Amino acid sequence: MTATSDRGVVPVHGSLAVYPGTFDPFTPGHRDLVARARVMFDRVIVLLAVNPDKRPTAEATARAARVRDAISAAWGNVEVDTWTGLTTAYCVRRGATVIVRGVRRAADLRQEYQLAAMNEKLGVQTVWLPTRPQLAATSSTVARAYRSAQSGPSIPEL
């Protein structure tokens, strides 16, 4: 199945892109990046990275299920997978030639540039997509803090 947008964007034929992240949680900004990437590439894998150095709020299988639930069933060219290890190793294993990364601000780009240079040396290109301005303020960190505040003890009234 080939995805097309209402603007007539046709994906690069035979392309497979990987969009990695811990997705803890999967935010509207993440979903927007998947929506945009799926019209640029024939297939997109949302890769839930399992990083033992991070302490996610849920196990990988639960987070992957949440990501699957957030993705439209009509997006037949998008799949969700999990992986422990280097994203480039996953890309080589699956035959993906592109890693998709979102960038919210200039500081993100500086860090992403270093990762992209390493990925390129390993044979995988990186494509950066800027976050839409209306979604840039919501990071996974902010979403976790908000969720924690909502489920935490109530604040006594003064």
Results as ranks from 00 to 15, higher is better:
Ser5Lys: 00
Arg7Ser: 09
Gly8Phe: 05
Val10Tyr: 10
Val10Lys: 03
Pro11His: 02
Val12Tyr: 01
Leu16Lys: 13
Leu16Asn: 04
Val18Lys: 00
Tyr19Gly: 08
Pro20Phe: 04
Thr22Leu: 13
Pro25Lys: 03
Thr27Tyr: 01
Pro28His: 09
Pro28Leu: 07
Gly29Glu: 01
Val34Met: 03
Val34Ala: 07
Val39Lys: 01
Val44Phe: 03
Val46Leu: 07
Val46Glu: 11
Leu47Tyr: 02
Leu48Asn: 10
Leu48Glu: 09
Leu48Phe: 02
Val50Gln: 12
Val50Arg: 04
Asn51Leu: 10
Pro52Phe: 02
Asp53Tyr: 10
Asp53Glu: 08
Asp53Lys: 15
Arg55Gln: 11
Pro56Gly: 01
Thr57Ala: 01
Thr57Arg: 05
Thr61Tyr: 08
Thr61Ser: 10
Ala62Gly: 03
Ala64Thr: 07
Ala64Phe: 05
Ala65Leu: 13
Arg66Glu: 15
Val67Glu: 02
Val67Asn: 03
Asp69His: 07
Ala70Asn: 12
Ile71Gly: 07
Ile71Tyr: 04
Ser72Leu: 08
Ala74Leu: 10
Trp75Cys: 08
Trp75Leu: 04
Trp75Lys: 00
Gly76Met: 06
Asn77Glu: 12
Glu79Lys: 06
Glu79Trp: 02
Val80His: 07
Thr82His: 06
Trp83Phe: 11
Leu86Met: 15
Thr87Tyr: 02
Thr88Arg: 08
Ala89Asp: 15
Tyr90Lys: 08
Arg93Asp: 15
Gly95Pro: 14
Gly95Ser: 05
Ala96Val: 12
Val98Ala: 02
Gly102Leu: 09
Arg104Ala: 10
Ala106Leu: 14
Ala106Glu: 10
Ala107Cys: 04
Leu109Asn: 04
Leu109Val: 12
Glu112Phe: 05
Glu112Met: 05
Tyr113Gln: 13
Tyr113Ile: 12
Gln114Asp: 09
Ala117Gly: 08
Ala117Glu: 14
Asn119Trp: 06
Asn119Arg: 09
Lys121Gln: 15
Lys121Arg: 13
Leu122Asn: 09
Gly123Pro: 14
Thr126Arg: 05
Thr126Asp: 11
Val127Lys: 01
Trp128His: 13
Gln134Asp: 15
Leu135Tyr: 14
Ala136Pro: 11
Thr138Met: 15
Thr138Ser: 11
Ser139Lys: 10
Ser140Gly: 13
Thr141Trp: 04
Ala145Asp: 15
Ala145Gln: 15
Tyr146Ile: 12
Ser148Lys: 04
Ala149Lys: 06
Gln150Ala: 14
Gly152Pro: 03
Ser154Gln: 07
Pro156Asn: 00
Glu157Thr: 10
Glu157Asp: 00
Leu158Trp: 06
